[in-house]
Design a protein around this nucleic acid. Sequence first.
DNA 1: ACTGGCCTAAGTCAATCGACTGAATTACTG
DNA 2: CAGTAATTCAGTCGATTGACTTAGGCCAGT
Lengths: 215, 215
Amino acid sequence: MSTAAGSTRPDRAAETRQVIMAAAERLFAEHGLSAVSSRQIAEAAGQRNVTAVSYHFGSRPGLVRALMARHGEQVDVLRERHLRTAAGSTDVRDWVDCLVRPTSEHLAALGTPSWHARCAAQVMTDPTLRVLVIDEALTRPPLTRTLEGLHRCLAHLPSQVLAERGDMARQLIVHTCAERERALAEGTAPPHTSWERTAGSLTDALVGLFTAPVS
Amino acid sequence: MSTAAGSTRPDRAAETRQVIMAAAERLFAEHGLSAVSSRQIAEAAGQRNVTAVSYHFGSRPGLVRALMARHGEQVDVLRERHLRTAAGSTDVRDWVDCLVRPTSEHLAALGTPSWHARCAAQVMTDPTLRVLVIDEALTRPPLTRTLEGLHRCLAHLPSQVLAERGDMARQLIVHTCAERERALAEGTAPPHTSWERTAGSLTDALVGLFTAPVS
DNA sequence: ACTGGCCTAAGTCAATCGACTGAATTACTG
DNA sequence: CAGTAATTCAGTCGATTGACTTAGGCCAGT
């Protein structure tokens, strides 16, 4: 029987993948995306083989994609829950909550220090990896449904303005969370800082951003 | 006489510095900060010596600092002008204009394609270069005066909220301009896109962000 | 118990990196 | 015209990188 007792055998690779991803995420957040070599990742993951990354993920972009996909799935679960409570609402704030809260809750669940927010910010700014992740993110059903709900509340805005403000919201969420994560990890955060509070500030700001009059 | 006729002699180094900075900026924007080596920069600048960067700028961080400082000075000039017209105003929009317009005007003056906005976004996200540039930027008098003016309009907000929203504004301006610059350079921008329009959208959004009610 | 397939370890290769050294070129200065 | 300091060029060094190949270890099913 291979019931409990930790893991059945074929999990060894999956475990190694997890270890590598955790190490990569930390190094990416600390030193920047392209400043970290595959060797360093493998070494930090306790793998004495320098080919570990390319074996398990094919390439560095493959690793990044796996990294983002894993968090994306977990955020999706949380977003589904928020979507159920926001269903049918015509209040912008409810839909902004669906945008912000899943991310902040996921980061809170990761504990401190976490690295994903900073890693995601790195990926978003990287000229080559940007596209790879953006269109993958935009095809996630819970996110597109959130945007649809938001658009229904803001139907009075020109579509181009809506698109612009959506982009701004994305930038704002990603980079604000990254900065907050760094402050939390470095211990330089102002008192009373928490992911809960961050989500609140972000939501307030985004509601203002989306409902601002168009000149 | 060495009046006209281009340049007096000691300018040779200054000229080379400019060429190197232009090449570096382009490569940084296209491939990411740490993905570009000093050698590649020197080569792209037409320098056959691989030591050109370290000779003229001491190090790679030195080059980045010089890059940011040069644009910072030019933006400062534009910001001074806006500050004169906004002086004494109690309208948030006037001060947001002082925040946004100098940047957009500077980018517009650079022509298309430009690379500075994307380069700046890279620097802002880099774990090591971030601090190097942020505190230098925050010590620029025209910027601090703008923030003071903004704070006077928003005195009713708790100081921590003010600080948070200031950070968000910074992120928003830098990354929105970077994304717009990329769209313009790649020709994938929607019609009617211009720095003028970008500034307008950004200003609307930021006014909404700053004046949003605190929950 | 054996065997076959998945996973990890170990070693190698050319290419490239940053830093360093010294010589050649340049254009002002006396 | 020669001297001088600044700038550019050319070549080298050890270290590191990604990609590749081969050998070893481990578990599952039979």
